[in-house]
């Protein structure tokens, strides 16, 4: 209290220097990065539980389905598309995990930052603008994806199922897959008032995609009409891209897969700019 009770004391107080020191270094860090920094700060507190959901679960899948079930598949049909099942499955799970993280992080956290915790509003009361808030959040999601994908690729290497240096490119590819979901989902989340639509999104889009977009088995196993649907899903492109990279079977088609995902990021981001502005700037 003494700091301020110097009210009227000569020379003022230490608390209110009206702008010298404190402001000296302002404006150096880009605004969006300041928003991203907040989410990183948050993550420090919750990373343990998020490691379980976003990393341990796919690794358990890999052990159970890739190794245990995979040995059965390999024995009976000599692997899938010429590789062992675990080598086939791992990149699929990687892309699927990226999809789930991207979607998860862009649903409840976005709604919470608007309605519950009002994090965005706090950021907007500081010098950040609405696009900084959006870009910062997406940048953080990308950073978190990069962490998860790196660990995942390391585990794959330990399993001995990384076949090519191209696998390093699977890191940005996985991040791209996740953000391709995060951006449009964030755009959608910013229009919602209740979280009930999120479980619908999961039930009818995310989980079916996870199961049928070439994650666990080649899309060619599906009836023909379903194949068309599967090829159109963003996850199919993410899965195929990651798989080609870790198996070292890279071709021009992969440029197409990446372009598809990039386009989705761009469209999602443009939509999110609109929905965020409409929701937060009134």
């Amino acid at each position: 209290m003494t700091a301020v009770s110097g009210a009227g004391a000569p020379g003022g107080t230490t608390l209110f220097r009206h702008g010298e020191d404190v402001t000296a270094r302002r404006m150096a860090t880009p605004m969006w990065l300041r928003a991203a920094r907040y989410w990183g700060y948050q993550y420090k507190r919750t990373w343990r539980s998020s490691v379980v959901t976003s990393f341990l679960i796919p690794v358990l899948y890999l052990a159970a389905m890739g190794v245990a079930l995979g040995s059965l598949i390999d024995k009976h049909s000599h692997g899938v598309d010429g590789v062992t099942y675990v080598a086939y499955l791992a990149p699929g799970l990687l892309a699927g995990t990226c999809m789930q993280i991207g979607t998860n992080d862009a649903t409840y956290p976005v709604m919470g930052a608007i309605k519950w915790m009002r994090t965005y509003l706090a950021q907007l009361a500081a010098p950040l603008g609405v696009y900084d808030v959006l870009l910062g959040h997406l940048a953080w999601i990308a950073a978190r994806l990069a962490i998860v994908v790196s660990i995942y690729l390391a585990v794959m290497a330990a399993f001995g199922i990384v076949y090519s240096p191209w696998a390093l490119v699977a890191l940005p590819a996985g991040v791209l897959t996740g953000v391709a979901f995060a951006a449009p989902v964030a755009a959608f989340a910013a229009t919602q008032d209740k979280d009930s639509a999120f479980s619908t999104l999961y039930r009818f889009a995310i989980i079916p995609m996870f199961l049928f977009s070439g994650t666990f088995f080649p899309v060619s196993q599906l009836p023909e009409w379903l194949q068309v649907v599967a090829y159109a899903t963003p996850l199919y492109h993410g899965v195929t891209l990651c798989r080609d990279l870790t198996l070292g079977q890279v071709g021009w088609a992969d440029v197409g897969h990446a372009a598809y995902l990039c386009a989705l990021v761009a469209v999602g981001y443009a939509a999110a700019r609109r929905t965020f502005a409409r929701r937060l700037v009134v």
Binding site: V22, T29, R34, Q42, M117, A122, A126
Partner: peptide
């Protein structure tokens, strides 16, 4: 931010101003 501490709330906010 209800889940963070009192001090952390000030720290985070100050970081928005890049202090």
């Amino acid at each position: 931010d209800l889940e963070l501490t009192v001090l952390d709330n000030l720290m985070i906010y100050g970081r928005y101003f890049d202090m």
